[in-house]
């Protein structure tokens, strides 16, 4: 049990209108190593955002617990930075003001110059130098999300939590920001957890892809290890022999198995240890078949 992040048997239930409760998920287990990039994919309503909120500390699980770096999560923490889907910038502050706000929240006794310098470093990292005195309203959607990323990175978080950060952006901007995030995460060894709907985004960014079945009572069907090389580039992603087997596996899951998994659970399925699979050229999995590799 020396995992960096460990989700242990968490459950989340919401009260139903007519009494009783709906179980979003229960007995959910999942862990991450330091420096790992995990993406979780699944249909809307499967509880992905709830898992992220629990990791962020914005919601508490009804059962179970989440441990980060040896400490149980009891609430939000500056160790865990969130990049919100809607960027959530404070519109009355400038770009620098927004990032400085995070920096001065983390290091409360820092001088104004030190805070500004740290914030500027984060702004430069996401390529927004020159726009630091602009208000969010003057920025494009992509630039706003860059500020959101800069704000999250500026506090040197142990883990970066991303809730569909690029879903509101156009395809070109999305691609550019994915490159940016991948570069930063690889360079700095940032541990990251991301929710996405986009299979290609998951393939490009994530080392581990968590497949979640449809809710309610969603489960982690399996954890897919990304067989693509770590130094992968967007332009030749699709030329890799492992790309299509992986992509097909993910699409098959989203299209059919996310619905049917509950009725066709593989033999020996254990919620605590969901099967780890590694689809690739040498291991093309047919839908419904999961081969344990670990």
């Amino acid at each position: 049990m020396n995992k960096f992040i460990s989700i242990e048997s968490i459950a989340r239930r919401y009260p139903k209108a007519g009494g009783g409760s709906t179980t979003i998920f229960e007995n959910l287990w999942f862990s991450m190593n330091r420096g790992e990039f995990s993406a979780i994919i699944g249909h809307s309503g499967c509880g992905k955002t709830t898992v992220l909120n629990i990791l962020a500390g914005l919601e508490l699980p009804d059962d179970g617990l989440t441990v980060v770096d040896g400490h149980a999560i009891e609430g939000p923490s500056l160790d865990r930075a969130v990049i919100f889907q809607s960027h959530a910038l404070l519109p009355w502050r400038t770009v620098l003001g927004n990032v400085s706000y995070a920096v001065s929240s983390k290091w409360r006794d820092w001088s104004a110059e030190k805070v500004a310098a740290k914030a500027m470093a984060a702004i430069e990292k996401v390529g927004l130098k020159g726009s630091e005195m602009k208000k969010p309203a003057e920025l494009s959607g992509g630039m706003k999300q860059r500020v959101g990323i800069a704000r999250a990175l500026s506090i040197d978080p142990k883990i970066l939590l991303m809730d569909e950060p690029f879903s509101a952006l156009d395809a070109l901007t999305r691609g550019a920001l994915q490159d940016e995030v991948r570069r930063i995460c690889v360079e700095t060894g940032q541990t990251a957890f991301m929710i996405t709907h986009d299979v290609d985004e998951a393939i490009y960014l994530a080392d581990k892809i968590v497949l979640m079945t449809n809710g309610p009572e969603a489960m982690i069907a399996e954890i897919v290890e990304n067989p693509l090389p770590r130094d992968r580039r967007r332009v030749d992603l699709h030329r890799s022999p492992d790309y299509y087997p992986l992509r097909n596996h993910l699409i098959d899951f989203l299209v059919t198995r996310s619905k049917t998994f509950k009725d066709e659970m593989p033999e020996g399925y254990d919620k605590r240890h969901p099967p780890i699979v590694r689809p690739g050229a040498d291991n093309p999995l047919t839908p419904g078949e999961t081969r344990k590799v670990a």
């Binding site: 962020a56 500390g57 609430g75 939000p76 923490s77 969130v82 404070l90 995070a102």
Partner: peptide, 14 residues
């Protein structure tokens, strides 16, 4: 006040 701004404050432990 927008929930997302309050969530920003919460995650920053303001």
């Amino acid at each position: 006040t927008r929930k997302e701004w309050l969530n920003v404050a919460r995650t920053l432990e303001v």
